[in-house]
Design a protein around this nucleic acid. Structure first.
Lengths: 339, 339
DNA sequence: TTAATATGTTTAATCGTTTAAATCTTTTTT
DNA sequence: AAAAAAGATTTAAACGATTAAACATATTAA
């Protein structure tokens, strides 16, 4: 119950009968050749005996490094975010870093707020899934010399480091695949947003339609706001499928959209793939357990998380400038929903 | 590019022409009645102009409080964990705390390691989903006077604070429900573990069988190790369902088990609920999108996360001893899989 | 008028580390 | 034998905040 006394450098110094400086040098393996072998051993022994655990806060203050990185995602409860978080956690731990996270809920001000809080806590760098309208916030980080890597989302005309996928290519491949299966009216359900990665998905979708000589009808695209609900998506499904000339295939722009959309499709008793073929972005367990296994665009989350973390930590440790701008390939996993 | 100079208390003091002490007093609203109105205003104005952001590390060192809590879950990538994480994040933020998380992968040594790392970082307290064999580690926290609250899992014979559900009752209700639907051979797929919450589920299952006058056959229970895979669970499904006298209902002890189990059931072309009724612990979106909506035991995650966080922070802020031991009720959401 | 009190601000120690510079010893070189 | 070099350790100043205690000065009380 009574907080046990924390062992400090001072305690070891006292026990061994030397100065704290010497203890510090020894425990950090510095000035190795200058320090007496016996004293060094004694210090190490006592440190172990007393189970000395350095106070990282004090260390951080002095060293101006916290060995902490800030992770800002849209919503840690979303599997896409939490899977990335797990990878980043592991990668960070390997290098002795810990992760503080926060969810922005796709709101700039929440994101800005998180950045501020984490900066006050002196995180050494950030990994950020940037939200709409957050370019200024990111720019500010950049001008202030705070190291960061963007993941998933990025800004096309900015030199900011990022790791993402080739969203254009992924959407293009998906639509081509559907066209190859004889689909003529391929719909897209996505967000009404200026987020570049989503625009790219739309651009890929359009380009593929053009390439495949398919109709690029405005009515085949349904956009919902980024914080929309089950109902809003259901509305879109109705619009695209319950009409005299319905879409014969659908591409969902995110896992959440697919989630809502599939629920709506099932509730409306529309059959996949007989009545409508379906392809979606992102992978969730759901897609394999759905009554018909779903064709999906599998993002290389492990690769994204790893590259982002590695680059950031390398920058932090070796003081190199961050320059990576990576677009990884996403894999189209073809299952029954688009056959 | 060049790190912009961070504004310190000293800078404000210099600008206003007073001591840092005074600045600190003003910005922390201390000694209010003792401080000259004009100076105070000037200090506040300059602080705002220079956009002063206090260095939390320095503050933490001095105050011996980091306003950070450590969250240890089994795996942040698991929706169960990440949903809890989100709630805890929000609750913590409300009170000005941030969260550092780590995944234990159900391993004691990883958990112990995380505790050590986070303690070194001087987290003020912990929220922990304890793993098997971790009683000693938790006891140690307790004797060292480190505040913590356990979630989901807990130790029955220990006075440690926790927030969990009534696992016995939940399992009992689920099995009763199945019995009420006329099921006679109700199987259980769970982990081979000494984790109390899982034992409670098994106990609830058994008690309900007894209560309903149903056979309590060892062959109806299949246990897999806590780090088992899809294959191991499939094995269990085979054992319980592909036999001359198969189970006519199944209760899954966790979301991961259900995930694996359902995949196996589908792959084996066994029909739910015609051939086997299914109820599972935990909620995931999957369960609603599965070809037949699943009956599941819905844990009040928001309530768990909130109560745990609130209690912990209250303890931290008001220095009250932590005593809560809460078992919340879980709700059985009946859907088609058990009809 | 002097002492006591109230008001406003500063001084300086502190939190637990790190580390450049100083100090003291011993050994080597000349 | 003195000077220089090498070896071992300590001193003391940081890091950026907080805060008890000290210090002025102005006001009130006696």
């Amino acid at each position: 119950m009574k907080p046990k006394k924390k062992i400090l450098l001072k305690d070891i110094a006292l026990e061994v009968g030397v100065s704290t400086a010497l203890v510090s040098y020894v425990l950090n393996n510095q000035k190795e050749n200058r320090i007496g072998k016996e004293v060094a051993d004694k210090i190490r022994k006592v440190a172990k005996e007393l189970n000395y655990q350095p106070n990282q806060i004090a260390k951080s203050l002095k060293m101006q490094k916290t060995h902490t990185i800030g992770l800002i995602v849209a919503d840690i409860a979303n599997p896409f975010s939490s899977q990335l978080a797990r990878i980043i956690e592991d990668e960070a731990k390997k290098k002795g870093y810990t992760v503080i996270f926060g969810s922005s809920d796709e709101k700039v001000d929440k994101m800005q707020d998180l950045i501020n809080v984490l900066l006050n806590r002196q995180v050494d760098g950030f990994i950020i899934a940037a939200v709409e309208q957050s370019e200024v916030a990111i720019e500010q980080l950049d001008t202030n010399g705070v190291p960061f890597v963007l993941i998933d989302r990025y800004f096309p005309n900015q030199p900011f480091p990022y790791v993402a996928i080739d969203n254009y290519g992924a959407a293009f491949t998906a639509v081509s695949h559907l066209a190859g299966r004889g689909k003529k009216k391929i719909g897209l359900i996505t967000y009404e947003t200026s987020l570049f990665h989503l625009l790219e998905r739309k651009r890929g979708y359009r380009a593929a339609l053009l390439y495949e000589n398919l109709e690029d009808d405005k009515h085949l695209v349904h956009e919902v706001t980024i914080d929309s609900t089950q109902q809003d998506v259901k509305q879109g499904i109705r619009r695209l499928l319950l009409t005299e000339n319905p879409a014969d295939a659908l591409l969902f722009g995110s896992n959440t959209l697919a989630m809502y959309g599939l629920k709506a499709i099932r509730d409306l008793n529309i059959l996949i793939p007989e009545q409508v073929a379906v392809v979606t972005f992102d992978e969730t367990d759901t897609y394999n357990l759905f009554y018909v296994p779903l064709t999906y665009i599998k993002q290389p989350l492990a690769e994204i998380g790893k590259q982002a973390t590695e680059a950031l930590l390398k920058c932090l440790q070796e003081h190199q400038p961050l320059t990576l701008q990576v677009n990884l390939n996403a894999e189209l996993v073809v299952q029954k929903s688009s056959m």
